[in-house]
Design a protein around this nucleic acid. Structure first.
Lengths: 201, 201
DNA sequence: CCCTCACGATACAGACCTGTCTGTTTGAAT
DNA sequence: ATTCAAACAGACAGGTCTGTATCGTGAGGG
């Protein structure tokens, strides 16, 4: 108990509070005054731990990114060696998340919508997050041994991002079921890889 | 030439200018001062034609909505009677649009990301737009005579909305081709409707 | 024992925001 | 020629925003 109120605790409280407000109300709609009031800290503390508000926004997305992949990794570990089951499990928890009552879309996509400048520090994080999603989906596609893993990864990326923004239009549907059915269709259509080039069979 | 500078012309110029700025820079990032400067009008004129900025935002989305369905209707008319060809044609122009260099996502989804309040006038327009998209996709699905037109419409909605927000991650891909392949897979997997219930065959 | 340093509290600067108000100019129809 | 509505121009009110600067406090470590 040497540092119950050490520098780490305050920084975390600020980031935690800011993340919650940013996600629920939008980044531009939340000012630093609101954040410090909700977190119960002084403005100087916020600016000691985060150089600018833009840095705080980037830290928000980085946090969301880490949390997202933490869940992903946990689910992936539970289905090691079975790519089809792993994909289905991912779509199950993503679909469940999308269907939650207070779900307000993917933070990365929301921030990207709010800030057109691709050089914004938060946009850099968001872009990396989406590329990582596609990279991981491609990994699953490869283990599924389909004909065109890259094409399947692109399709699954579109599907997952679509689920993130379709909460409104999917209201009333069973999101996990929709995603699972879609994935089955896409994987099946992608077929098996062509046989190794060999003398005409 | 009786009203070159009549009331209609000014209103249109404001809405046109605001739409361009809103789309490219984001709604919250664009102030009314910027709009009137770019449109070359007085602030009083803006507030005569639009009660508040929120109303102007809603008008922006309504305009985008109308433009979108105008293109849709034109493409649909060119493939009347052939639902499969119509769907493919829609995905072609949507994919082409998504791949444009300055594409910045679907305005309806962007505004929804910026304004959490579902009661916001612009959110009402956005919601109606997305429901209309699903309704039209369902119409196509029905004419395709698949087993579950509602399910297919849900899947196609997710796909199209996913395309709108996946420009970043689809960079380098041929978006129309990705969408077309996806649609083929989804339609095929949806299969034909079960035969009319009749005495056991 | 004292020194340092993170933290809280608060005032402030300078810019920007939406929306209103006043007053002038234009242009067309009566 | 007079009337009237619309547009322009610009000041203004009242609030919010980010970021800085100042001062006080309290606790841990040399």
């Amino acid at each position: 108990m040497s540092e119950q109120s050490g520098p780490v605790e305050v920084r975390d409280r600020i980031l935690e509070t800011a993340s919650d407000l940013f996600y629920r109300q939008g980044v531009r709609a939340v000012g630093v005054d609101l954040i410090i009031a909700a977190a119960g800290v002084a403005k100087t503390s916020l600016y000691r731990h985060f150089r600018t508000k833009d840095d705080l926004i980037a830290a928000f997305l980085t946090r969301e990114d880490e949390d997202f992949w933490a869940v992903w990794d946990r689910v992936a570990a539970a289905h090691a060696g079975n790519a089809a089951a792993e994909l289905e499990a991912h779509l199950a928890w993503i679909g469940e998340r999308v269907g939650r009552p207070r779900y307000r879309g993917c933070p990365q996509l929301n921030v990207a919508a709010e800030f057109p400048d691709e050089g914004h520090p938060a946009r850099v994080v968001a872009r990396a997050h989406k590329l990582e999603l596609r990279r991981r989906l491609r990994g699953i596609a490869e283990r599924l041994a389909v004909a065109d893993p890259d094409g399947l990864a692109a399709q699954l990326s579109v599907m997952v991002n679509g689920a993130f923004v379709s909460a409104q239009v999917l209201a009333g549907d069973d999101a996990p079921a929709v995603l699972t059915r879609m994935a089955h269709a896409l994987v099946s259509a992608c077929g098996s890889p062509p046989p190794r080039p060999s003398p005409a069979p």
